[in-house]
Design a protein around this nucleic acid. Structure first.
Length: 937
RNA sequence: GCUUCGGUGGCGAAAUUGGUAGACGCGCUGGAUUCAAAAUCCAGUUCCCUUGGGAGUGUGGGUUCGAUUCCCACCCGAAGUACCA
């Protein structure tokens, strides 16, 4: 019988879904295991062979764990809100609701063909109101919480209000930027409602801010820092500028230290942890106050190099610095204003490309150096960032290259404080190998001596204190877009109020026009029905807004990561109407045991979701403070793009090896016109693409050869390979195994359809072991010793490899095994039975079919995973004399384990050797080609 | 610039973590089967002279009886990040 994968796969997929084989309950006597893939955006282009790589790996692992006796949760869903989904809808001119559900249907049919064991009864979609109800609920929790610095966790804002009522905010003194903000309980009780609201806003974990944000005009929305790459939007690659706009933020910065230190407790890839550490950007330093000459104000600077304080020759403040107005003298006012104007129009990109050109102006004011009491000028420059540190720096040209360049450009003093070090060409930035000079009481000290001394001096004089600074900024939460969760806030007299849980979900309104606007007005404003009636608890029409009980709703929506920051908990109990997941379900599943996804989410989803986790943990809603104990980043599968060469200025195309001495342009063409040997189907290309109909094609040796190049697989690069096509030609099981066989899971690797035949013929060979003269036949006879040995070797290797997640070498072991068994002509049931269970995570349809042909009534998925018998693998050995280090010892052919009882049979015919071994009690001897090469003691 | 990860045949890659480098697969070469093709099977395939040797894991050093593996310096590639004081 032939291996007809098409029939087999269809049959078993139906069987699985009819019998709900992959649905799991929220309780079991077995130990639990939760395997999760990062859920996809249903993007419209459908899946290509690169997408399922991670799903296949996690599916194999989930199935393996199930064989191992675990109760495995392995769900799937869709991240269907957000920019990518909406951009697709806009470019195709359809409503995002429609494109989203259409795309999901395509995704689902493609996923189903590959035989994944997902529990689809738990499917979620972030754009489903029943889901985003809870996304909104979490936002309300953020709004109603503050971060308590004493208990180091989030708490209800009500606690804070109580505290203010009874004792004011004196306790928070050290967290306030100025002493003006201190109030006592009497003050608080006398404050007007608006003042109270404003004060509370500066403590809430979700808060309104009107600072500068990353604005992308083309996308018509504000973006968070991780969504901007080199001045362009991550999605679409559009220019990003700075803009002042009122927006919601999440106070993730309060969690910086915990996000950083808890990285130690999770088994995530080191490079990814490193990316998060860099993003959080912790640095230790000191803040120092400089008195402003003639003004009763201080400028506080932050520095990590207080040891260089005597090299300070000027101060620089950011253009957005609070006191800049006061610092600017009359004479310099025009200059400063001109300067501010000149940089305000700059886009993020211009600021980046301008790094080398130093700009800035003198404010006219001077500061007093706290130790030398010298007058030093105060400048303003955009190389100082307002949102980092204090927005002001002490400039030490001799010790910092930026200060050095600035001083050079504007002719400011450069004072060398490093003994014997030449700073005529550049600043000296090292933190070692120097002794200070011109530094008063720090003279002749090294870096570590100086830094300790100066910190204690600064603290003694009470002009500053040690400080830890993070790069991590609060996350901008508002999006001026349609396709996202509405923010459950309505405004009374401009003050935000939250909806109640019972009012949720606040559903996305139907609008006439959902397109984003260039001026930043949210499309939700285009709705006729979009205001909140607090008495009837429902959304009502705009024109009733003037009525006493009807108030305008927030028009911005949430960012894409709002829904994806907590979704892994919804899977635990996805149909729950009363809570985002029941206590029991959360208590049972706890957290993800294995999470798979791409490393591109390192500073986005993977950071935000850790933040959400810690927040919900603080409120006792979740039981653990990290949600994924192990994470694996799967690498990308690269496409194999094809190009043809056109002679410049002509319409002539040349085969790859005919372009010598010609000026040519590379033209990208769809890989469907190119065969496996890189030959172009010219007629097909000309017929289906009019722009080539008049072109001349010059072939070599009768064929036209194209250029090939590996790059990211994407529809726009015409290099996608559809998994459906591979399933049609070779079957899902072959595709699954081949994708794993390509190389290590974490690595980027090029796709090549050519290599798939190896895996395909492996499965056919395996299949044929079960058949004799076309008839299914499995022997009851006991297998040969050789077959048993092969089986046991394979079980050992495969188990080890799956545990290590080395799935490519795992498949190699299968191939070796089947090749040997074919040679042995082994069809013994006691060998084939365990082998089927072994292969079933990789090729589930294949295994089920043969399993049932063997007469088993139940699905193979719950069969216990075979274990190997070590004693079968060890052979008795004899030792022979051999020379080692010039002395005669003994020899064997293989390494062996001396702990094993087989040691008894070793003949030691050399007294010296025997003594040597008796003394050392070696565990293992390795001998190669008659020479001892290792004795493991 | 900084951080991280890599560099092994024509290609994707293995190497029990210091022990016969190149397992397994693709491709290629030759052969069998076939009217023929597909499929299948057998043999060979790191490189160089070839009876037999010699060289070989980016380059140059070092440790070791022994190094793809450990240490130092350098070269190349990929990813992340960048006026963060």
């Amino acid at each position: 019988m032939k291996y007809s994968f098409l029939e087999i796969e269809k049959k078993w997929q139906k069987f699985w879904s009819d019998n709900r084989i992959y649905e799991v309950k929220n309780s079991s006597t077995k130990p639990k295991f939760y395997v999760l893939d990062m859920f996809p955006y249903p993007s419209g282009a459908g899946l290509h062979v690169g997408h399922p790589l991670g799903y296949i790996a996690s599916d194999i692992f989930a199935r393996y764990k199930r064989h191992k006796g675990y109760h495995v949760l392995h769900p799937q869903g869709y991240d269907s809100f957000g920019l990518p989904a909406e951009q697709y809808a806009i470019t195709t001119g359809q409503h995002p609701k429609k494109t989203t559900s259409d795309n999901i249907e395509i995704y689902r049919s493609q996923l189903d063909r590959m035989g994944f064991g997902f529990d689809w009864s738990r499917e979620i979609r972030t754009s489903d109101p029943e889901y985003y109800k809870w996304t909104q609920w979490i936002f309300i929790l953020f709004f109603n919480s503050y971060y308590c610095p004493f208990d180091n966790k989030a708490k209800s804002i009500d606690n804070l209000i109580e505290l203010f009522k009874s004792e004011g905010n004196l306790k928070f003194k050290s967290f306030l930027s100025s002493d003006d903000m201190i109030f006592d309980s009497k003050d608080w009780n006398n404050f007007k409602k608006e003042s109270k609201s404003k004060i509370l806003m500066s403590y809430r974990l979700a808060y309104l801010s009107d600072g500068e944000v990353n604005w992308c005009e083309e996308l018509g929305t504000v973006l968070a820092n991780d969504e901007v790459i080199n001045g362009f939007s991550e999605r679409g690659g559009f220019l990003v500028t700075k803009k002042r706009i009122k927006h919601w933020c999440l106070r993730i910065s309060k969690y910086a230290e915990r996000l950083l230190s808890d990285l130690e407790s999770i088994d995530w890839p080191e490079p990814l942890k490193e990316m998060q550490r860099n993003w959080i950007g912790k640095s230790k330093g000191v803040s120092v106050k400089f008195k402003v000459d003639g003004l009763k104000k201080n400028i506080e600077v932050f520095t990590t190099r207080p040891d260089t304080i005597f090299g300070t020759t000027f101060l620089t403040v950011a253009p957005e610095y609070d006191l800049l107005n006061e610092l600017t003298t009359k004479e310099n006012e025009a200059k400063v204003n001109d300067y501010l104007k000149s940089i305000s129009g700059k886009s993020e990109l211009e600021r980046i490309s301008d790094i080398k050109s130093v700009t800035g102006v003198f404010t006219g004011s001077y500061a007093i150096h706290p130790f030398t009491l010298e007058k030093i000028p105060i400048w303003v420059s955009d190389y100082v960032i307002a949102s980092y540190g204090t927005g002001a720096v002490m400039a030490v040209p001799s010790g910092d290259q930026r200060d050095y360049d600035f001083a050079n450009k504007f002719g400011l003093e450069i004072k060398n404080i490093f003994k014997g070090i030449d700073i005529s060409k550049s600043a000296f930035e090292e933190k070692s190998n120097f002794i200070l000079e011109n530094s008063d009481f720090l003279d002749n000290l090294s870096f570590s001596e100086a830094i300790d001394k100066i910190i204690s001096e600064i603290e003694k004089k009470e002009i500053g204190k040690s400080k830890i600074q993070y790069k991590l900024r609060d996350a901008i939460f508002s999006r001026q877009r349609y396709w996202g969760e509405p923010i459950p806030i309505y405004y009374i007299d401009g003050e935000p109020n939250t909806l109640n849980l019972s009012d949720l979900p606040l559903e996305l309104p139907e609008v006439d026009n959902f397109l984003p606007t260039k001026n930043g007005d949210s499309p939700l404003g285009n709705s006729k029905k979009w205001a909140w009636d607090i008495r009837n608890k429902n959304v009502v029409q705009n024109d009733l807004i003037d009525e006493k009980n009807v108030f305008p709703l927030e028009l911005n929506t949430m960012p894409g990561w709002a829904g994806s920051s907590w979704y892994f908990y919804r899977y635990m109990d996805s149909n729950n109407k009363d809570s985002f997941a029941s206590k029991d379900a959360i208590e049972y599943w706890q957290r993800i045991d294995l999470y798979l996804g791409g490393s591109e989410h390192a500073t986005g989803h993977l950071l935000y979701s850790r933040f959400y986790q810690k927040f919900l943990f603080d409120l006792n809603i979740l039981p653990v403070n990290e949600y994924a104990s192990k994470l694996i980043n799967q690498g990308m599968i690269l496409g194999n793009s094809s190009f043809i060469y056109r002679e410049r200025g002509t319409n002539n195309f040349y085969s790859k090896n005919l372009i010598k001495n010609k000026k040519v342009d590379k033209i990208r063409i769809d890989i469907s016109y190119v065969d496996i040997e890189n030959k172009l189907d010219i007629d097909n290309l000309k017929n289906s693409n009019k722009s080539f109909s008049d072109s001349e094609f010059y072939s070599e040796n009768g064929s036209f050869i194209v250029e090939r190049e590996h790059e990211k697989m994407s529809k726009s690069k015409f290099n996608v390979v559809n998994p459906d096509d591979i399933c049609d030609q070779y079957g899902a099981d072959t595709l699954r195994m081949y994708e794993m066989f390509l190389g290590p899971i974490e690595q980027a690797k090029p796709w090549s359809t050519r290599g798939i035949s190896g895996v395909y013929s492996f499965l056919k060979k395996f299949w044929n072991l079960f058949f004799l003269n076309g008839e299914f036949q499995v022997s009851k006879d006991s297998p040969s010793d050789e077959s048993l040995k092969i089986l046991n070797q394979t079980i050992k290797k495969v188990s080890n490899d799956i545990e290590k997640f080395s799935l490519n070498t795992c498949i190699s072991s299968f191939m070796i095994c089947i090749n040997k068994l074919s040679e042995e002509k082994c069809n013994s049931e006691s060998v084939l039975r365990p082998l089927l269970i072994l292969i079933s995570p990789f090729a589930p349809h294949f295994a089920e079919e043969l399993w049932s042909l063997m007469g088993n009534k139940k699905s193979i998925v719950d069969e216990p995973f075979p274990t190997h018998n070590e004693s079968i693998l060890i052979e008795s050995q004899k030792l022979y004399p051999v020379s080692f280090n010039g002395k005669t010892r003994f020899t064997i052919n293989l390494s062996l384990d001396l702990n094993n009882e087989e040691i008894e049979e070793i003949i030691l015919n050399d007294d010296q050797t025997k003594k040597y071994l008796d003394n050392r009690k070696p565990k293992k001897i390795i001998i190669v080609k008659g020479k001892i090469i290792n004795i493991v003691v």
